[in-house]
Design a protein around this nucleic acid. Structure first.
Length: 303
DNA sequence: GCCCAGGCCTTTC
DNA sequence: GAAAGGCATGGG
């Protein structure tokens, strides 16, 4: 049993304890700024599902799995021994989420303040780059339930079968295995016209130096990303924000267009101009605030 | 059946 | 450089 002091205000870990299950590790964090529901259901990731019986979420990333549950003041994370560092990086547990919420409110924009308060437990992830990249290529002109379905289908078709807490799941496939299949294969999986991008992108990603790409920011990073087939400005912004830690990237999709018009009184229809409106207004963490807005808008206007 | 979805690409003006 | 059309499929 190990316990540690919580540095004032910032760090999320309250205590860590030995797992009750063999080969497992459990951590707990303050739930105020780590809500499994907001973090997973805000649209930044797709491979998860809610387990009503256990009252929490199974979540899969790359070749790993974890279980998350909010229990009053704390959020509990369960993963396999050795995966703690992976998930603590993924959930960016050292990031100061409270400061971001305060920064959002500091603009004095009522709609953003409400969105930030509503979304305060939403943590921007540091995703596996290959998985995030291909996920958002599939996301275009698509709805979130179907994107999830397509990604689970991709993993079931080409990923490795694994087990976590008694449940079978499939890892995200290796890029080489994805690149080895052709367009027809992905059409058969129901990817539609996006099928042609998947093997071509996987091929290019195999040749990509991710650490060099990861050193880029802003326009430089975006320019590098849109060079891949099926990646335009919006998808590039999502990849930059969710997998490359570029918090200034501000994806503009139909939902953002809608809230720009309805809640910010915007008149522009050109997505590039809408992007500029928000990035110039909200600065280096605009992308985080975009997620507050997107999640709030979708959750409060279902249907 | 209908409209729409975390758009991108190509063609045309 | 801006605008329009095509694209696959299923969720609601």
């Amino acid at each position: 049993m190990e316990s540690r002091q919580t540095p004032p205000g910032k760090a999320l870990t309250i205590f860590r304890r030995c797992a009750t299950l063999q080969g497992m590790e459990e951590m707990t964090y303050k739930s105020e700024y780590f809500s499994p529901a907001a973090t997973l259901e805000c649209g930044q990731v797709f491979r998860f599902f809610r387990d009503e019986e256990r009252g929490g979420y199974f979540f899969f990333s790359a070749d790993k799995a974890c279980f998350l549950r909010e229990e009053g003041e704390v959020t509990r994370l369960v993963c396999e021994d050795g995966d703690r560092a992976y998930f603590e990086n993924l959930f960016d547990v050292n990031a100061d989420a409270a400061a971001l919420v305060e920064e959002a409110k500091s603009f004095g924009v009522p709609f953003l303040s409400r969105a930030a308060e509503f979304s305060k437990g939403l943590r921007i992830l540091r995703q596996d780059r290959a998985e995030c990249f291909l996920s958002f290529v599939l996301s275009q002109q698509n709805n979130i339930p179907r994107i999830r379905k397509m990604l689970f289908a991709l993993c079931a078709a080409l990923g490795g079968k694994k087990k976590f807490l008694g449940r079978d799941y499939f890892s995200f496939p290796a890029l080489s295995d994805i690149a080895a299949k052709d367009e027809a294969f992905y059409r058969a999986l129901g990817f539609g016209y996006r099928a042609k991008y998947i093997p071509r992108d996987a091929e290019m990603l195999l040749e990509t130096d991710f650490s060099a790409l990861g050193k880029l920011r802003g326009e430089g990073l975006k320019k590098a990303l849109v060079a891949y087939p099926g990646v335009g400005n919006k998808v590039a912004d999502c990849i930059a924000l969710f997998a490359f830690g570029d918090k200034s990237a501000f994806p503009v999709d139909t939902w953002v267009e809608r809230l720009y018009r309805e809640d910010f009184g915007g008149r522009e229809t050109d997505r590039a101009k809408i992007n500029r409106f928000f990035t110039e207004k909200f600065g280096e963490h605009a992308g985080v605030f975009q997620q507050y807005l997107f999640y709030y808008k979708r959750e409060t206007e279902r249907g």
